[in-house]
């Protein structure tokens, strides 16, 4: 399902004089089946934006269009029920979406609620947890007794178990150990490619954004300042300089190398493979700019 924002404004307490404007004239379009990273500093409005896509918040003015559902300030809660079935939302703080007495019951809740029998919902729950690499000895523990990372995996399993068509992920890898984070990111990519899910992921992990997203939305103080593919976004020197945009580690490495050596190259790398060829090229180039044989 495609996601469209048309001149969306959102103010907290919009009817009072001291209203606080959290989204300012935000417009964009995300194609059906796309994978987008939502970047921006702390407090720039990422969570607020995500909450508009499943109607947890409604625009003060403008429209949010998800599939064929239009959400405006006038949309009623009951018009949103169908939409919510199709939109999975992983909250920034996982414990805010875990509530059942056991992990198994928690993850099975969604599928059961959407019409599965109890045994088949539990089957789906187990399969999903297993796929995420969750420690299956903890199935009957209370979610509140899990470690931070385990809670996030359990919450994610609950979201995936309902088989949504849109995935809203609010910092899905915060608190995950690096190998689990990697596994989860690869799974998201697979869901996009094989099941055609539309994914929008708020993240502070520039490396993951560079590696997995097709495009990036960059927020600053409630405004959408740029929409671009990772390879273009991370070349934006001006935004980097203004500290609106942080860079992937590999890109920073290349910039530091360039600053030290005076080597100039048009394009900065955004993956480790690109960094290695960037360095290889630098080391094999003579100062006149001609390529010589690489160090062998």
């Amino acid at each position: 399902m495609a996601i469209v924002f048309k001149e969306v404004n959102y103010s907290y307490q919009s009817k009072t004089p001291n209203a606080f404007q959290l989204l300012k004239n935000v417009s964009f379009r995300l194609a059906d089946g796309s994978f987008t990273a939502l970047l921006g500093q702390t407090g720039s409005g990422k969570t607020t934006l995500l909450k508009h896509i499943n109607g947890l918040l409604k625009p003060s003015s403008g429209q949010v269009i998800v599939g064929d559902q239009i959400i405006s300030s006038k949309t009623s809660e009951k018009d949103l029920a169908d939409l919510r079935k199709n939109v999975g939302f992983l909250f920034q703080f996982p414990e805010t979406q875990l509530f059942a007495p056991t992990v198994l019951q928690d993850v099975a809740f969604g599928p059961e609620n959407f019409g599965q029998t109890k045994p088949s919902a539990e089957q789906i729950a187990k399969k999903t947890l297993e796929m995420l690499g969750f420690d299956m000895t903890l199935l009957n523990q209370s979610p509140i007794n899990l470690s931070g990372g385990q809670q996030r995996l359990a919450a994610l399993a609950g979201v995936l178990a309902t088989e949504p068509q849109i995935l809203l992920l609010d910092e899905p890898t915060a608190g995950l150990d690096p190998s689990t984070a990697k596994r989860v990111m690869i799974l998201f990519k697979k869901l996009q490619q094989e099941k055609h899910l539309t994914i929008l992921m708020a993240t502070h992990d520039m490396d993951a954004a560079a590696e997995f997203a097709d495009q990036i939305l960059l927020m600053q103080q409630g405004k959408l300042v740029k929409q671009a593919a990772p390879k273009d976004m991370f070349q934006e020197k001006e935004l980097v300089f203004q500290k609106i945009l942080a860079l992937p580690k590999v890109t920073t490495f290349a910039i530091r190398f360039a600053a030290k050596t005076g080597y100039t190259n048009q394009k900065l790398p955004i993956s480790e493979k690109e960094l290695i060829s960037f360095l290889q090229r630098a080391l094999s180039q003579d100062p006149s700019g001609k390529e010589t044989t690489p160090h062998a």
Binding site: Q41, T42, G148, E171, A174, G175, H204, A246
Partner: peptide
């Protein structure tokens, strides 16, 4: 994990 959700520059 006190800074896990803070932007990289921050």
């Amino acid at each position: 994990e006190a800074t896990s959700m803070i932007d990289p520059i921050g």
